[in-house]
């Protein structure tokens, strides 16, 4: 009939039998050749069960073995096989083994005495914080700087400059940071995003008049290209976060992201201008308008993380790590 040797294993991984479909012991599988009936063994599928059963093929159905030996280790776990002795079927009718697997996270309904959902957030990303007292000190210092310097400056700035002007300034700086994103995309082997970033840069630099207008936003393929940085590249290469640090003025980072931050500064064309004119410090007055321009948004993010928290330091740390984890790209050697 049909060569199921290749098609069934793929199906076994994908096919999950729900209780709805389990009332009958006859199962139909969809193969490249169409729908075919298969026989199941290894037990019956219970009715009205919330549990998930996975189906796995028996490879020996293609090549029947000399003496059919029941697998020892699964004997006690599996339900009794149906009345008939499990005999190898002809090669044309595949046999499927039922394996009961624990549901990912069985949850107790709200209000039950047994709270099975308490470990829901047990695996939230965390980092080591060996210098917490020092970090708390810098966190306090930054908090004062944000509240007493950055906030009034940002307020005055947003009052003086209307939204379109602020947006245009932000666009120019964002466009100028193209080398940071391009280099990191290339270092991560993400050639698709490197290509999209290049298109964006060319379009905004020309049609957008030096990046003042973000013309690329009008093109769906270019409007949501994920940003990237050197910290993400290091993460992709398998470099761990390292300890958590709070840098004065700059704010929260991990050891990896601190190195990444230095990399981003080095890749920024503004730094090159400073070096070219023999005064690297010139980068500071060039980048300051951008810092002021984006302060409003960054302060809002800071407020969202800390304002209504119980412990602002812990809230900021957790937010930072979760945010960085969300943007993390999987490391090259995939974890088993």
């Amino acid at each position: 009939m049909i060569p199921l040797k290749k098609t069934i294993p793929a199906l076994a991984a994908a096919l999950v039998l729900t209780p709805l479909a389990s009332a009958q012991s006859r199962i139909m599988v969809y193969t490249t050749e169409g729908f075919e009936p298969v026989e199941i063994r290894g037990g019956k599928l219970p009715k009205n069960s919330d549990e998930t059963f996975y189906l796995a093929t028996q490879e020996q159905t293609q090549k029947p073995k000399k003496a059919p030996k029941p697998p020892k280790e699964k004997k006690s776990r599996e339900p009794k096989p149906p009345k008939a002795k499990p005999t190898p079927k002809p090669a044309t009718t595949p046999t499927i083994q039922i394996t009961k697997k624990a549901a990912p996270q069985p949850k107790a309904p709200a209000g039950d005495e047994e709270f099975d959902d308490l470990d829901e957030y047990g695996n939230i990303p965390t980092v080591a914080d060996p210098i917490e007292p020092v970090n708390r000190g810098f966190f306090w210092l930054n908090h004062q700087l944000y509240n007493y310097i950055a906030r009034p400056v940002s307020k005055a700035y947003t009052t003086i400059f209307p939204k379109p002007v602020r947006k245009a300034i932000g666009n120019v700086y964002n466009n100028a940071e193209y080398p940071v994103r391009l280099t990191n995309n290339l270092l991560q082997g993400d050639f698709k995003n490197a290509d999209l970033e290049t298109r964006k840069f060319l379009l905004n630099s020309t049609a957008g008049v030096g990046g003042i207008m973000k013309v690329s936003d009008r093109f769906p393929s270019l409007s949501n290209v994920p940003s990237t940085d050197t910290g993400q590249t290091l993460g992709k290469w398998g470099v761990p976060h390292g300890p958590y640090v709070v840098l004065p003025v700059v704010g929260p980072r991990t050891a990896r992201d601190t190195v990444g931050f230095a990399g981003d500064v080095a890749l920024n064309p503004v730094t090159w201008v400073g070096i070219a004119v023999g005064a690297p410090a010139i980068a500071l007055p060039i980048t300051t308008p951008n810092s002021v321009n984006t302060a409003h948004t960054r302060l809002e993010v800071y407020d969202a993380a800390t304002k209504d928290s119980i412990d602002p330091y812990l809230a900021a740390r957790s937010s930072y790590i979760q945010y960085r984890e969300k943007n993390k790209k999987p490391a090259k050697p995939a974890a088993p």
Partner: peptide, 9 residues
């Protein structure tokens, strides 16, 4: 950033 994960910490 999960609101609950943040409060959990």
């Amino acid at each position: 950033v999960s609101m609950i994960a943040n409060y959990r910490t």
